[in-house]
Design a protein around this nucleic acid. Structure first.
Length: 833
RNA sequence: GCGAAAGUGGCGGAACUGGCAGACGCGCCGGACUUAGGAUCCGGUAGCCGUAACGGGCUAUGGGGGUUCGAGUCCCCCCUUUCGCACCA
């Protein structure tokens, strides 16, 4: 588990940890060697922002917060391997952020470029595309601005296709997350096609330039005969060229500038009116050979594809609207609907009758030599044709962009490079790692990198030439820290490598990973990327880091997500003081399945508390007789199962059936809430078995005497064995949920040594099976009778028995029996008429 | 607009692969124990209609169709909610 040390954990956070702990404890008892570690995502803006306000250094506040939250988790009895605790703000950790960065730099996976980036004016730093939600900063919700900056990027796009195909192997991930990642990566198969600019003059081409082409990207090359104009993004490189040679360059530029401004606004608010204007120039459609006008349009995105498109108004709704608005030609080249016409041209609607674009694939018409052919076959052929003629080629586009990791902030990992006037960008030698964060004490929040204020840190000698040089003053996005922390857990104290590959091979991959859906793209995509990079570096041998993913629901209070500012935070420490850690643990598990959102309820917590008291009481009731020194052992195990009364057999069956259900619920289905209800049923059964004698206040051991109606000598050894079996199983199975209570009860039952060494109970399927079953009999689909039969009855016997039943006869006499179905269940279904 | 998931008592939720809908808990009602009970134990609790009695009948899983001996579960249409994507050419 990994958490941002905000200072306090509320029950929403804690729910996630409890879910993990239940699984970890169960697996441990099942004999697995479980790695259940905890770490701190300790770098980040909030600590630095707090420093701006309060003057407390981020390091101080972060370490204080960690200490407090760690206490909260420990008090809840979460069984973390604290000896493997890590914190990303420590040089021992971030040294390897830098190490990995250098490996990526060597491989060309970390690079620097100037580009337009998302700038959050409130956080005073840039954001990756993934970190901009609806045009706003993912952290503070401020609308982002665009800035032109020189930035470090990770070349995640190099792995785009692998990240996409890898999704298919993630069968234990929620489909929702897989779909979100697939959409984010956004692969489009299409073609890049050149539309030469008609009549390109020497001045336009520039001296010796090969020719002036507009390259467009399309996924619908099959509609290219319907491409009746070309649209450029306002940011397209040719726009300025066209402006310069236009009759009124100033006006041209002004109109375009309006689009660029509008375009940014549109991205933030949603839809805008599609607008554009004619450049006055023409391009040549390389398939039809016809000249088509070139326009600039505000809805064409510069950052996707080539920043230019061929417009096919008949078969693209956006182009259609644009064409109608500006009265541009529309040419239909795909038959709509399909089968209604064998004679294509005769039934085509007239373009002027169209009310909307038809976007279906279908038989081509009015497309020269391609007439009558259909997608997808024709798409392949047309791309091949374009390649042959040198006017284009097949191309795959991704929506995914490279990951901008530079942050102009202090509280993060320094990027380990040095800028030398002579040698340019030089990597810090591995031997000089870590590049430690200098102690900056004044935070201005100005938006330049705080590290730049520390001259003795910034000014260094170039590792190559020894000349004067400056350190990079940006720090890394904190998502870098969290992209590989799970690997560090395998070998957290390694000083030479991020981790020993042998340790990673032993522990990885992560079998069970849980967190909120908010990580569906950001963290989970970056981690998948890092894992592949580290694979290529040779540190791991697998592609996917997380085998099974659970996206757990949030805990709401008064219908809203808990937050300090809303004042609706439920503090686990308060609840623990009132009801105990175990009741809190049990409640958050029982209230709903892990992946569902829940509304916090004190009454529900109280119910869980009551259940634990009830467990305590029933164990306490029997403890002395069952757990006493003369009770355990001699009179015990050899007699179990032999010569039992109905009630004893019933309890035994319930015990074994409960073991089965709870085991399946936790280990396979992750239905932790129903595992608890099964345990509740077992407890109810134990009360019924105890015949109303187990009541009164919970005692603390000896006081049980006198309340028990039966003395030890009056109890059959068989009874004792059956009860002991039930109580032992109950206490062990409840221990993942309520470890403290279970531990206490375990010793009450006379066991020496704690639960840590106990193995999970196993069940006997034979015992768990009922020996008599009540079989419902349906007549024409309605249950009309029930027959009681031995469980091992054959189908034929059951059929006869059912038909002979008086209740069934009442519905069948005088009618014809059409059909009798004996179904597993079992159930008998009779059809009469 | 596109895509996905979900919709079950007063409430949270069960129902595993198409097989007795409502497990378990909360709440509520009743009983026992008690000077007392807001503790505890026992029992009841989907709705409607009947009965002297219950082992009675009907209707019920957002609405409407369908497949099936049998549908909360599968298929089609619609409604609502939540989430994701949103000019990606």
């Amino acid at each position: 588990m990994f958490a941002y040390p905000s200072g306090y954990a509320h029950v929403g956070h804690v729910r996630n940890y409890i879910i993990g702990d239940v699984v970890a404890r169960t697996k441990r008892m099942c004999g697995f060697n479980v790695l259940h570690p905890f770490g701190w995502d300790a770098f980040g803006l909030p600590a630095e922002n707090a420093a701006l306000k309060t003057g407390t250094h981020p390091e101080t506040s972060t370490l204080d917060n960690i200490a407090h939250m760690k206490g909260q988790l420990q008090r809840l009895g979460i069984s973390y391997a604290w000896q493997r605790e890590i914190a990303t703000c420590l040089p021992e950790y971030y040294k390897f952020n830098q190490w990995i960065f250098l490996k990526m730099f060597e491989r060309g996976l970390a690079y620097r470029k100037r580009s337009t980036v998302n700038w959050c004016p409130s956080c005073q730093t840039v954001l990756a595309n993934e970190q901009v939600i609806d045009g706003a900063c993912w952290r503070c919700g401020t609308i982002v601005e665009q800035r032109d900056l020189e930035q470090w990027f990770f070349r995640i796009t190099q792995y785009a296709d692998e990240l996409l195909t890898g999704l298919e192997t993630l069968t234990d991930w929620p489909e929702k997350v897989v779909v979100m990642q697939r959409n984010w990566i956004g692969r489009s198969d299409g073609a890049r096609i050149k539309f030469p600019v008609a009549g390109a003059t020497e001045s336009l081409r520039g001296a010796g330039a090969p020719g002036l082409d507009i390259e467009i990207f399309t996924t619908r090359i099959d509609t290219i005969y319907g491409a009746t104009f070309v649209l450029l993004a306002p940011e397209h490189a040719l726009v300025e060229t066209f402006a310069a040679e236009s009759p009124d360059p100033a006006a041209f530029r002004a109109r375009n500038a309006k689009f660029r401004a509008l375009d940014r606004e549109a991205r933030l608010t949603g839809a805008i009116e599609k607008e554009g204007f004619d450049t006055g120039r023409k391009a040549i459609n390389p398939f039809t050979g016809q000249e088509v006008p070139i326009w600039i349009a505000n809805f064409v995105l510069a950052e996707y594809g080539t920043g230019a498109i061929m417009a096919v108004p008949a078969h693209d709704q956006r182009d259609f609207e644009f064409a109608r608005k500006y009265d541009l030609p529309i040419r239909i080249v795909v038959q709509s609907g399909g089968r209604e016409s064998q004679n294509p041209s005769s039934r085509l609607p007239s373009p002027s009758d169209l009310t909307a674009a038809t976007t279906n694939y279908g038989r081509l018409v009015d497309s020269g030599p391609w007439d009558g052919q259909e997608a997808p076959a024709v798409v392949t052929k047309m791309i091949a044709d374009a390649e042959k003629r040198g006017v284009g080629a097949g191309e795959i586009q991704y929506r995914l962009k490279d990951w901008g990791i530079s942050r102009q902030r202090y509280w993060g990992t320094p990027i380990p490079v040095i800028h030398c006037e002579k040698d340019g960008v030089v990597a810090v030698p591995y031997g000089d790692l870590p590049v430690k964060l200098p102690k900056v004490t004044t935070f201005t929040g100005r938006g330049d990198s705080p590290l730049a204020q520390v001259p003795e840190w910034v000014n260094v000698k170039c590792p190559k030439c020894g000349g004067p040089a400056r350190r990079e003053t940006d720090t890394m996005d904190t998502f870098v820290d969290s992209s590989w922390y799970f690997l560090r857990f395998c070998d957290p104290r390694n000083t030479e490598l991020p981790f020993d590959p042998k340790d990673a091979a032993y522990w990885m991959t992560v079998d069970f990973y849980s967190g909120g859906v908010e990580h569906a793209i950001l963290h989970l995509l970056y981690s998948r990327f890092f894992t592949r990079v580290l694979r290529d570096v040779g540190l791991v041998t697998f592609d996917e880091p997380f085998k099974r993913l659970l996206t757990q629901g949030m805990v709401l209070k008064n219908g809203a997500v808990m937050s300090k500012s809303k004042g609706n935070v439920v503090d686990p420490d308060d609840m623990r003081q009132k009801y105990g850690a175990d009741a809190l643990r049990l409640y958050v598990i029982f209230v709903a399945p892990p992946e569902k959102e829940v509304e916090w309820s004190d009454a529900g917590l109280e119910g869980s508390f009551r259940f634990l008291v009830r467990v305590w009481r029933i164990v306490d009731h029997w403890a002395e007789i069952v757990g006493g020194k003369d009770g355990r052992g001699e009179k015990g195990e050899e007699t179990i199962g032999v010569d039992l009364t109905d009630a004893e057999r019933g309890l035994r069956r319930k015990t074994h059936d409960t073991i089965r259900r709870v085991t399946v619920d936790i280990e396979e289905r992750m239905h932790l809430n129903t595992a608890v209800s099964s345990l509740m049923e077992l407890v109810n059964k134990l009360y019924a078995f105890s015949d109303g004698t187990a009541h009164g206040q919970p005692t603390h051991g000896a006081a049980a005497t006198g309340r028990s109606v039966r003395s030890l000598s009056a109890i059959r050894p068989q009874t004792l064995a059956v009860v002991r079996e039930a109580l032992d199983a109950l206490v062990v199975m409840i221990s993942p949920f309520a470890p403290h209570t279970a531990e206490e009860l375990w010793s009450k039952l006379g066991h020496a040594g704690g639960l840590m060494k106990v193995t999970w109970p196993s069940f006997d399927a034979e015992v768990a099976k009922a020996d008599e079953v009540v079989v419902p009999v349906q007549i024409n689909g309605k249950v009309r009778a029930r027959v009681t039969t031995p469980a091992d009855i054959t189908e034929d016997q059951l059929r006869e028995l059912a038909l002979a039943d008086p209740g069934v006869k009442a519905h069948t006499t005088g009618k014809t029996i059409r059909k009798v179905v004996v179904a597993k269940g079992p159930l008998v279904s009779v059809v009469v008429s």
